Simulated scan of single mutants.
Amino acid sequence: MARFKYGLLAAILVVGLNLRGSIAAVSPVLPDIRADLHMSSATAGLLTSLPVLCFALGAPGAVWLGRRLGIYRALLVGCLVIALATAVRPYAGVWLLLAATVVLGLAMTVGNVLMPVAVKRDFGSAAGRITGVTTASLATGAALAAGLTAPLAVWLGWRHALAAWALMALVAVVALAGPATAAHRSPMTAVPRAGGMGARLSTNPVAWAVTAFLGLQSVTYYGVTAWMPTLLRDSAGLSLADAGLAMSLFQVLGIPGTLLVPALVHRGRDQRVLGITIGAVWLAMLLGLVLAPGLWLIWSVAGGIVQGMGISYAFTILVLRSADDHVAARLSAMMQLFGYTVGACGPFLVGLIQGATGSWILAMIPLWIAAAGLVVSAMVAGRERLVR
């Protein structure tokens, strides 16, 4: 049984590698994409915003698919679609590129919604610690994509460099084959019936605070992921290589950031101080990027650690605040639906404002507001209260 649990964990970790990588891969080669396809700043922002919006809109469908097929079969289907969409989208024009990006986002949503449910259900009392490890896999996938896409583009061109990440999704398909076909697991594969948010969930302030934290964390993370290299090249005069280094650091340091949270979150029953600290560091980093861009190395390091802590905190709080796996399924769907709807605004608003005004100070205001909102939402989400 223990060996089977390790197999499940390994499969979930490989799935996690695919839930951010194809989004993070765009940023290092965005100038090349814009030049070749004649994209505006607002349209370029959609390449990062659209998948996040799909995380929201596709959440109810992901719960339905999980109930229909079982968690691990649904994850397998999601990873197969990620592989296909990733392989196809770089070779189309602008509109087909955007359409394939929507499909990619919907496929990633299956993993976003069902991974926390699988952890809550299959790992019992270890769920909080396992959540930190699985969240680290998201940061690892993003870090690999951010760090390797630019060198691959030099060698292969940006189209082949983006398409190459389909291979990682195929690895996940193989890893999920065992859990998805294990007959003796069939009684456990159904996702608990979500039935919408439910009256209790929709009126629960803790549930809304957890949702808000994920949404505002997404605004800051995806806004920085989409635009930090361009901002630093414009404001600090960085070369393409140094801007790529800044983004690589931002993504790579998310890995230790995610692993810090499980160690800190269990030091007490109240997690408010940790959440407030995460929001405060985000705000300092985002202000520093614009007001002191020459210190980009400090901001990349601080931002990398705190972005990992932020996403890990959001999903760990989801698990800790859920009374059981039924509530985890409903709260996960609620978080994805409303949280990622808010999160999708970040990259698009930054690109829209910067393109219209030419000012990075004005463009970053939405991210500053989001970071301040993290502090407020953590005051409620961090309280020791179960969502039922």
Score class of each variant (00 low, 15 high):
residue 282 W to V: 11
residue 158 W to I: 12
residue 212 A to N: 13
residue 268 G to C: 01
residue 192 P to D: 04
residue 276 I to P: 11
residue 339 G to K: 05
residue 141 G to Q: 08
residue 361 I to N: 07
residue 279 G to S: 08
residue 17 L to W: 04
residue 22 S to W: 02
residue 238 L to W: 00
residue 240 L to N: 12
residue 280 A to N: 03
residue 85 A to Y: 03
residue 347 P to D: 12
residue 139 A to E: 03
residue 231 L to E: 14
residue 188 M to S: 12
residue 205 P to I: 06
residue 315 F to T: 08
residue 9 L to G: 02
residue 240 L to Q: 07
residue 24 A to Q: 06
residue 272 R to G: 10
residue 133 V to A: 11
residue 107 A to S: 07
residue 62 A to T: 00
residue 247 M to D: 13
residue 44 A to E: 03
residue 381 A to K: 00
residue 294 G to K: 09
residue 275 G to Y: 01
residue 271 Q to H: 01
residue 285 M to L: 05
residue 36 D to I: 11
residue 236 A to N: 11
residue 154 V to N: 13
residue 187 P to C: 02
residue 213 F to V: 14
residue 388 R to W: 02
residue 139 A to T: 15
residue 163 A to M: 01
residue 170 L to P: 00
residue 153 A to M: 07
residue 4 F to W: 10
residue 244 G to V: 00
residue 290 V to Y: 00
residue 181 T to C: 08
residue 34 R to D: 07
residue 215 G to H: 06
residue 110 V to P: 00
residue 193 R to T: 15
residue 314 A to F: 02
residue 88 V to Y: 12
residue 158 W to T: 09
residue 231 L to M: 15
residue 301 V to Q: 02
residue 34 R to Q: 14
residue 133 V to E: 10
residue 273 V to C: 13
residue 67 R to G: 15
residue 126 A to E: 12
residue 61 G to H: 03
residue 160 H to I: 06
residue 242 D to P: 00
residue 315 F to I: 14
residue 102 V to Y: 01
residue 279 G to H: 00
residue 59 A to K: 00
residue 6 Y to L: 13
residue 325 D to W: 01
residue 288 G to S: 08
residue 74 A to F: 05
residue 314 A to I: 03
residue 117 V to K: 10
residue 246 A to Q: 11
residue 302 A to C: 14
residue 300 S to T: 03
residue 147 G to M: 10
residue 157 G to D: 14
residue 275 G to T: 13
residue 160 H to W: 04
residue 212 A to K: 09
residue 334 M to W: 07
residue 160 H to N: 14
residue 286 L to M: 12
residue 288 G to A: 06
residue 59 A to M: 05
residue 324 D to G: 15
residue 204 N to V: 03
residue 214 L to A: 14
residue 344 A to E: 10
residue 373 G to S: 11
residue 207 A to G: 07
residue 182 A to L: 14
residue 311 I to Y: 01
residue 179 P to S: 15
residue 85 A to P: 09
